[in-house]
Amino acid sequence: MTWIFENWDRFWEVTGVHLRLSVVPVLIGFVLSIPLGWLASRSATARAILFPLANILFTIPSIALIVITPVLIGVKILDEINVIVPLTIYTIALMVRSVADALSAVPGHVTAAANAMGFRPLRRFLTVDFPLALPVTIAGLRVATVSNISMVSVGALVGLGGYGQLFTEGYQTDNTAKVFAGLIGTVVLAVLADGLLLLLGRVLTPWARAGR
């Protein structure tokens, strides 16, 4: 802990990088998984392709993905894109299923009633299906965010910033306090992000707790 206070500026800077590297992929992945999840909830063919693909992607170790990304998309090895792209892929792999399950769980009588009242498809999706899918979607988002926050540290292995950098530096200089600082930072960030999403979910879906 003392390390953190003695090196406050450094710690703060590392936290900023870590946050950016974990939140940006969550946001991009979340936005992309909505249409993909919708597709999977509508079509058995899409499901048959997307779900196994998501599973396979998820079994690839993050370090492997981070190392081959620059080769595949041709950017410099130190570019932040090398973490953002793999983590986005992980987020999508995780969220497609959440979104698809959440959309499939919207009761048929509710969507039928919406159709019968004259909703057009896009409006129905935005104002009925998606809001009803939010509780399950946000649960998936929490898992994706927390796992991203922990995975960003791996980026340090290819020289990128974030708390992972504190790990590698700490190891190399035999500075346990530095390693602990990185650890504490990761955990606190994960808990805060999780709590924030939980709160956001409660604010956005007050109805989900009605009638209990």
């Binding site: 039928a112 919406a114 009803l132 109805w207 989900a208």
Partner: peptide
């Protein structure tokens, strides 16, 4: 039958 009300 199930009213089909919007829960949200």
């Amino acid at each position: 039958q199930q009213a089909g009300l919007f829960p949200h």
